[in-house]
Structure formats: C-alpha cells, structure tokens
Design a binder for these strands. Structure first.
Lengths: 111, 111
DNA sequence: TGAACATATTGACGAATTTCAATATGTCTA
DNA sequence: TAGACATATTGAAATTCGTCAATATGTTCA
C-alpha cells in the first residue's frame, strides 16, 4: 500500500536495521559524507556491508549521492525522509494535532 | 539505540511488514476489534499468522489487548504510536517546523 | 463435567536478510 | 598506460522472518 506515492512498508523496512539508522542519523548530523568516512565510523561493518546498506537507502530515496572525483558523497534526502515520517504519522496517528504540520501530500492522503 | 526510551529500530521492524501495517491501520480506523474480526478481514493470512503478528505489535507496545469472555479485543495504542512516529521524525527530520508539535519526550531527546 | 468456541503456542519449512571475502568497476595521477 | 585508490558487485554462509498445520490453553454454556 502506498500513501502519497510512497511505500510505507518499504520505508519502514529500510529503517528497520540498526546500521542503516545509524548511517542516516550520521548523515543528518554531519551532512555530506564519503563512503569511507562512514565505513571508518563503523568498526562493526565491512566496506561491502556499508555499500549494501547505502544501496538500500538510495533505492528508497532516503539518501542522495554524487560522485566527486574518485569519491562518492552521500547525503540525507531530507525532503523524502520528512515526507515519509509525515506519511507514517498521518497513517497511524492522525487526529493528534497533526494538521498543524502535515506536508501537503500527506494532508491530501488523509482526506 | 533508543530515543526517549523507545527502540527506534524495533519500532520500524514492527512496521516493516504489510500485514502488520494493515492490522494497525484497521485498528486505527475501526477501534477495538476481536482477533476473529481481523482474521476474517485477511483472506491471505491464517489465524496463527495473525496471532503471531499481534504478538509482535503487542511486544512493541503498539497495540493494547483485553479479554472479554471468550474473546480478546485488540486496539491501537495511539499514544505509543504517536510517540514513536514523533521520535522517528525528531531523529531523522528535525528542523522541519517540527518543534510546533513534538511530544515532550521527543523534544527533550533533541536537546 | 464436557462440548464448543476463541485465541495462543509449537514446530517445521521456505524465503528473505545480513554479512563478508573476493573481485570488478571507475577515477585519478605519475 | 600502469598503479593506486574509492566504491560497487558477486557469491556464499549464517541468521532471521513469515507462514501454516497441528495442538494447547482458556472461557462459556448446557
């Protein structure tokens, strides 16, 4: 099922892993990062593992990436993350003063 | 990792299944339901499967249950769901006019 | 008490997920 | 162009997850 064109289940699955949540939060806090920066921050995970998680996050539209020379820079796709969180809230916890702040698309989805 | 005493990853894992999202939304829309009502609504799933999903949702505090005679009634734990969604938003998409509406605990967690 | 009903638990199976070593791809620079 | 570097992909092993048939538990009523 999708709300406002976003797949709620896929979004939650993408967030349903500790490493991926840590990556996202790192990007949220620090902005754009090279893959190597992320790998270095995770003693517990190998480079291929991080690469795999980044691929999943990218596929769900939660991060952006761009190449810069040899390196690839990842950043949080803040708009999408925001939209997905709003959609989740609208789907499961409407009527909680939410109308104050809903993004347009989620507001429409509730109607 | 936990924010405001809630395990973000476990919450997302619980929501990372289509059947569980459907159950939650059903409870959100219709209020308290007997297990049989839920089972009846899902041609695709058996009674043990629904029971299993309800157990997971209960374990994460997303639903409440009470016995009434032979039957057991499930309902959405709206406060917790709301709090979890807010926590998610606070963790990954702060700075989006969110301060307007954050629950107390999530607001504290951002500080 | 025993039969009927509602729900939970167990056990097993296939599918999906996470992980890493090995390797491939793409980019820069000497 | 060759070598070094950064990241992605592949393939395989271990684990987790979703599912259901069978069965257990708990409740009501005759």
């Amino acid at each position: 099922m999708t709300v406002a064109g976003i797949d709620c289940v896929a979004f939650c699955r993408a967030l349903g892993d500790a490493t991926r949540q840590d990556i996202l939060q790192m990007l949220q806090k620090k902005g754009e990062l090279r893959v190597n920066d992320i790998v270095a921050a995770f003693e517990r995970s190998s480079q291929p593992t991080i690469s795999h998680h980044l691929k999943i996050l990218k596929h769900e539209g939660l991060v952006n990436s761009r190449r810069e020379g040899k390196e690839i820079l990842y950043s949080l796709n803040a708009e999408n993350v925001d939209e997905c969180c709003g959609m989740l809230w609208a789907k499961f916890a409407p009527g909680k003063l939410l109308s104050i702040r809903l993004p347009k698309s989620a507001r429409k989805a509730r109607a």
